[in-house]
Design a protein around this nucleic acid. Structure first.
Length: 610
RNA sequence: GCGCCCAUAGCUUAGCGGAUAAAGCGUGAGAUUGCGGAUCUCAAGACCGGAGGUUCGAGUCCUCCUGGGCGCACCA
């Protein structure tokens, strides 16, 4: 581009972007880049290659909406004080007269940007036009496979599986929001020796000496509680009789080899479990595209094992077939992984490997995400590395999002000792507590019995999910009823309350908001909301890119808090003048949309009244 | 024994190599003849586990130590 046109081009670019989406961050980067390039040309900057421009949000909003530390980084190269360099760059940026920037300051080596009120207002209008689509992106060609939830059959759905379920769902939602084609997979734990244990138990404890008809009756009426009890009992018996382990292995072997009886009993346990899980997913408002448990990959295993042999990756060792890894700068030296046990049965490693191949072929994804407990980190490293060694990988990115566990203070839960907290129990209790609060506070809101039930569900379950999602995935969560069902502070009910408050204000104010807003004398509280709310698209992107739904929680809580602060000190429906009223109603609308948007990405409901 | 992760206020957590370490819960004090008090305001509360190092600058990066979690082939 000819130099004389460049300035003009930037202006157009800036203006064009102002009216579209809230990616002012990129605009500011460009503005800085241009200023630096100009300064280089005139010799004011002597550094040859410039460092990457990074911009951030100052912690204190009084210092601006964005800041760059470029001058601080350049101090050494330039041999000048940071404050001097910052001044020079800042004045060059000022000369560009970018409309989206209202104020620019060079303070202590930082260059601070204040977004113009006009830009903020226009962005607010965009929010109310695009509503729930604000921040979303158009369909792209990108594809992502997300494996999540993945409970084990024949066990009740414990609170431990809540993490994978809600984090995975949020990641799925986020990428969908960003225009990706998403494929969700529920990788049920329905294969392997544990199921041999269950089969053995059912056969020994339930079906012994029964005729065909009785057997069918017993199997049909099995419950998840019974299955779980059988599993716990097995481990009690195992302590006294270690040989039982062999019996479990035998039964799994039978299942793997297609033994009819084993298969039949197994089918029953699976059906019973799925029925249970479906109820939980309904309650949680989670929908997973495909339920493909480990057994799904069963018929691909032989082929995969053959391939590892053919490619010279598999190795025999003590009667088993393993993969050994060599030293690798990225992963270090991984310990060997087991493909086939000495008794000929496969392991979950083999099945995960088959799953990788299947998913790459089937979906041609750009990213494969696995949301499981952190304790599987090594396992997935081994799987991903094996897939690379097999030459299956061509640019696909593998991401293991390992989550921490729900723990008591004294340690983790274990199904074997029967110390499980059932998710359903937690959800029911949460709904009950929410209901009590609704009944206590419901005066003149006129909610019907049915509405109250719906709201109690939305609030109770939303609370449980939010409590989970607001933690960084990798950190453990100490199980504590009071924290899980918290209705105050950084919690779903607080945010839902704020949403309902917005909805109520809008409803009472009645009329739709039309015409240009002239109001510009924003108060601090109003400006705070504006400055926060426009960050939403940026936050959604970052949450997706870093697989951290908790960033959405941080953001939406800040926004709700800002709104409540504003609400406490401003009249909306009967504001001091019509311009103020119009603006504040628009602001309220914007906040409502973005809250709904955020919670929607977390699969948390936003009732209009509560 | 080897490897990975973690340690921030009484508790639960934010914190992107940069500005006075930020919230919520809990605690104490206050706010409504007002659109939802499931709200808001104020206060107390942190030598960021310890010791070195790198850097103009470290809660953030490196090394060691302490404490905790997890994993290391026939469990998933």
């Amino acid at each position: 581009m000819p130099t004389q046109l460049r300035g003009h081009f930037y202006l157009i670019l800036i203006r064009a972007k102002c009216y579209t989406q809230g990616m002012i961050r990129e605009d500011i980067k460009e503005i800085i880049a241009k200023a630096l390039a100009d300064l280089q040309k005139t010799g004011a900057l002597t550094s040859g290659d410039l460092p990457e421009i990074k911009i951030e949000h100052p912690e204190d909003l009084r210092l601006g909406d964005y800041a760059t530390n470029i001058a601080l980084i350049l101090t050494k190269k330039e041999g000048k004080k940071a404050s001097e360099i910052a001044e020079v760059i800042a004045s060059k940026i000022k000369a560009q007269n970018a409309k989206s920037i209202e104020k620019l300051e060079a303070v202590k080596g930082f260059i601070n940007f204040f977004i113009s009120k006009n830009y903020l207002l226009r962005e607010l209008e965009t929010i109310t036009e695009e509503k729930e689509r604000y921040g979303a992106e158009k369909e792209t060609k990108k594809r992502i496979v997300v494996e999540y939830s993945s409970p084990n059959i024949a066990k009740s759905f414990g609170i431990g599986h809540l993490r994978s379920t809600v984090i995975g769902q949020a990641i799925y939602n986020l990428y969908q929001f960003l225009g990706w084609k998403c494929f969700g997979i529920n990788h049920l734990g329905d294969w392997g020796t544990p199921h041999g244990k269950i089969l053995y138990q059912i056969k020994e404890k339930k079906l012994k000496g029964k005729n065909e008809k009785e057997k069918e009756e017993i199997l049909k009426n099995l419950t998840i509680e019974e299955l779980e009890r059988l599993y716990v009992d097995f481990h009690k018996d195992l302590a006294a009789n270690p040989k039982l382990q062999d019996r479990a292995r035998e039964w799994f072997k039978k299942l793997e080899q297609g033994d009819r009886e084993a298969k039949e009993i197994w089918e029953y346990t699976k059906t019973i479990s799925l029925r249970e899980f479906e109820r939980l997913y309904d309650l949680l408002d989670v929908r997973i595209d495909s339920v493909w448990g480990e057994s799904f990959y069963e018929n691909m295993l032989k082929d995969v094992v053959e391939e590892t042999k053919k490619k010279g990756i598999a190795k025999e060792s003590q009667g088993a077939l393993i993969i050994e890894y060599s030293e690798n700068p990225d992963t270090g030296k991984l310990p060997p992984a087991m493909l086939v046990k000495s008794d000929g049965a496969t392991t979950y490693f083999t099945r995960d490997l088959a799953a990788v191949r299947y998913r790459i072929r089937e979906f041609k994804p750009d990213i494969l995400v696995y949301e499981t407990g952190v304790e599987q980190t090594l396992h997935f490293r081994q799987v991903f590395e094996a897939a690379r060694m097999l030459g299956w990988v061509s640019g696909e990115k593998f991401v293991h999002v390992g989550h921490g566990l729900y723990r008591f203070e004294h340690g983790k839960f274990s199904t074997r000792s029967g110390e499980t907290i059932h998710l359903e129990e937690v959800l029911r209790e949460a709904i009950l507590r929410a209901r009590k609060i609704i009944d206590a506070s419901e005066t003149g809101r006129g909610l019907s019995e049915e509405e109250k039930e719906d709201v109690a569900r939305a609030v109770g379950i939303g609370g449980v999910k939010y409590n989970d999602l607001s933690h960084n995935p990798s950190s453990d969560i100490i199980f504590d009823w009071d924290k899980i069902l918290n209705l105050k502070g950084n919690s779903a009910p607080y945010i839902q309350y704020t949403y309902a408050r917005c909805a109520s204000v809008l409803k009472k104010a009645g009329e739709k908001n039309n015409g240009e807003i002239k109001y510009k004398d924003f108060s601090l509280e109003e400006l705070l909301i504006l400055r926060l709310i426009v960050r939403f698209p940026e936050v959604a992107r970052e949450a997706a890119e870093t697989f951290s739904p908790n960033l959405l929680c941080n953001f939406v809580f800040d926004l709700a808090q800002a709104y409540n602060l504003f609400y406490a000190s401003h009249r909306i429906g009967d504001a001091e003048n019509n311009e103020a009223k119009k603006f504040r109603l628009l602001l309220t609308q914007g906040v409502a949309h973005v809250i709904k948007n955020c919670l929607g990405l977390l699969s948390i409901k936003t009732p209009e009244r509560l």
